[in-house]
């Protein structure tokens, strides 16, 4: 089933094309790697999807409905977005997780998510004692993993991942990539320069070299 579709999307920043008549279909369960020259294009793709930028022309469909003003709010509740920007908040790590779960739209999964927290901490090699640390004290790689765990707690199945393994060491990097790309029910769009791909899984690619 087609989940997300870009139809002839064009986006310019000060006369420079970032996307030019871009069309692409993403089906449920697809894993799509977005790579290529650094620049605005890749992250812009995510920002357009989430409604943080407006396309100059073209449509973006989610479940065959046009994404626009109001429907962005619904879309944001269905996807997980992990940005490469590690400014994820202030204060205690524990409060960071509970703040996310106390958002009105996440309240229904709160208790289930909290029960899963220890498992995720363990899997991503974050000691439980980190819950009482301040986010500001954490390293880039630690913040990155905290953001990943925060995202996974939400039990959503569509992932927009923007260079989420860039600050992780090699074994964690492989573990993280495997985690997302080997789950049949996850739909994953990920921006990454990594050469590593798990074997035996079908990964589609969008390359931004042509623009």
């Amino acid at each position: 089933m087609c989940l997300i579709e870009f139809q002839h999307v064009t986006k310019k920043f000060s006369e420079q094309f970032v996307l030019n008549n871009f069309s692409f279909k993403i089906n449920e369960g697809d894993k799509v790697q977005i790579s290529g020259r650094s620049g605005l294009g890749k992250t812009t793709l995510f920002r357009l999807l989430l409604g943080f930028e407006k396309a100059d022309s073209g449509n973006i469909l989610f479940n065959n409905n046009n994404l626009e003003d109001k429907s962005f709010w619904e879309f944001r509740k269905s996807v997980v977005y992990i940005s490469q920007d590690l400014n994820i908040g202030y204060g205690k790590v524990r409060n960071f997780f509970t703040e996310t779960l106390f958002l009105k739209s996440n309240l229904h999964i709160k208790s289930k998510a909290l029960a899963m927290l220890d498992n995720y901490l363990d899997f991503f090699e974050i000691p439980v004692s980190f819950l009482d640390k301040n986010i500001e004290e954490l390293s880039g790689g630690e913040k990155q993993r905290i953001a990943i765990i925060n995202a996974l707690l939400l039990e959503r199945k569509i992932f927009l991942l923007d260079e989420i393994s860039s600050s992780l060491d090699n074994s964690l990097k492989i573990k993280t990539i495997d985690f997302f790309l080997t789950k049949p029910d996850f739909t994953v769009l990920y921006i990454s320069h990594d050469k590593y791909l798990p074997k035996g899984f079908d990964i589609r690619t969008i390359k931004f070299d042509v623009l």
């Binding site: 943080f52 920007d85 009105k104």
Partner: peptide, 18 residues
């Protein structure tokens, strides 16, 4: 200035008020 932090909250499912 902290647009990305605001966007991050929205992406987690926060409404405008939250």
């Amino acid at each position: 200035k902290e647009e990305n932090l605001y966007f991050y909250k929205l992406a987690l499912g926060a409404n405008k008020f939250e």
